[in-house]
């Protein structure tokens, strides 16, 4: 049973990495194309969130839990960035 599981995990990790890479590529297309400023922000936010996932998958792959801290910090920084940009957009429009 554990043999099957180990094999399955060994196949799953690269495939999941590939899926997340495709998702990042789609996000980058939206980032380049997005007509308005908030569209760019949404695309960047999505890419950052996907990256938090990529880091975690990598942590599982190399069996090194320390990397999970990185995704925690990435999540925090992303949120602050989004809030700052939203605030900036509203202030600029109000003037």
């Amino acid at each position: 049973m554990s043999e099957i599981g180990a094999t399955m995990l060994a196949w799953t990790l690269p495939a999941v990495m590939a899926a997340l890479a495709i998702a990042t590529a789609l996000g980058i297309v939206r980032l380049i194309r997005g007509p308005s400023m908030p569209d760019h922000v949404v695309a960047l936010d999505l890419i950052g969130t996907i990256f938090a996932g990529v880091i975690t998958v990598y942590a599982i792959r190399v069996d090194e839990p320390v990397y999970i801290y990185a995704s925690l910090v990435l999540g925090l920084v992303l949120f602050l960035g989004t809030v700052a940009i939203g605030y900036f957009l509203e202030r600029r429009a109000a003037r």
Binding site: S36, M37, V83, I85, G86, E90, R92
Partner: peptide
């Protein structure tokens, strides 16, 4: 975050 962006977008 979604709320802030949507609000700013509707505002602008």
């Amino acid at each position: 975050a979604a709320h802030i962006i949507a609000r700013a977008a509707h505002f602008t």
